[in-house]
């Protein structure tokens, strides 16, 4: 287990009140220059409660471990209910959703029909390593390829090395634009849709409440929508 003793302690001074957050999502949810949706949302929300924030993108499960162990202060966006929450007893949820995310199937085969999870049977399917929600759903597949990121996932699809690539809609569309993936489509309806939340280390339980209020306030004053439109609006328009 990660050592709690190694976790940085929250400091009292304002200059040093900074939250280290991790996310399993890449662009456009979170980017290396902290200009993703999650990055900007957290920067705004935390600023409202007097915190600075820094985000990075470790591997999804590693991100949970880091937050649970206190190396990081929190992790998100995560689904509403972590199935293996008992493995992360040190996480508390910020009771205000960050966004809704659809898990969709990308395919370049026009004849391939993907209606639900069962329809993937008999096809070559690829997912990103660490997406537990997907791994559990696809255990029945005989051919499941796992790669390290969304971009890699779509390259498999681009070069015909998999029939279907499953990921969240925003990341898939953003990555498809970056690698120039054409003649592919997103199967409709989504395979799953989830409301995503932020989880903080238990030592920030008080911050979690403040942060939830800040998020709600941002939604009320339009700040949330403004950020969403700026970062995810063009992706949402490609759909």
């Amino acid at each position: 287990m990660f050592s709690l003793l190694a976790a940085p302690m929250a400091l009292a001074s304002d200059e040093e009140r900074k939250l280290y957050l991790s996310t399993a999502f890449g662009p456009p949810i979170s980017t290396a220059d902290n200009r993703g949706f999650f990055d900007r949302l957290m920067q705004q929300a935390c600023a409202r409660i007097g915190y600075q924030v820094a985000t990075d993108q470790p591997q999804a499960e590693r991100a949970l471990m880091l937050a649970n162990s206190g190396v990081n202060d929190g992790d998100g966006p995560r689904v509403e209910s972590l199935d293996n929450l008992w493995s992360y007893p040190n996480l508390v949820r910020v009771e205000e959703p960050l966004l809704d995310i659809d898990f969709v199937a990308f395919t370049c085969d026009p004849g391939l029909v993907v209606n639900d999870w069962k329809s993937l049977s008999g096809h070559n399917v690829a997912i990103v390593t660490g997406w537990k929600i997907l791994e559990r759903r696809l255990t029945y597949l005989s051919s499941l390829v796992k790669v390290k990121d969304v971009e890699h996932l779509l390259r498999l699809l681009k070069y015909g090395r998999t029939d279907v690539a499953i990921m969240d809609r925003y990341s898939g569309l953003d990555a498809a634009g970056r690698i120039g993936l054409e003649h592919c489509r997103i199967a409709d309806p989504p395979l799953d849709s989830r409301t995503m939340y932020l989880y903080l280390n238990i030592r920030h339980v008080e911050v979690a409440g403040k942060l939830a209020e800040a998020l709600r306030a941002m939604k009320q004053d339009g700040t949330y929508q403004h950020i969403f439109q700026e970062v995810l609006g063009h992706v949402d328009a490609q759909n």
């Binding site: 591997q59 499960e61 590693r62 390593t129």
Partner: peptide, 8 residues
């Protein structure tokens, strides 16, 4: 191991 890429 950091990236939990157990396959690799």
């Amino acid at each position: 191991l950091w990236s939990m890429d157990y396959e690799q």
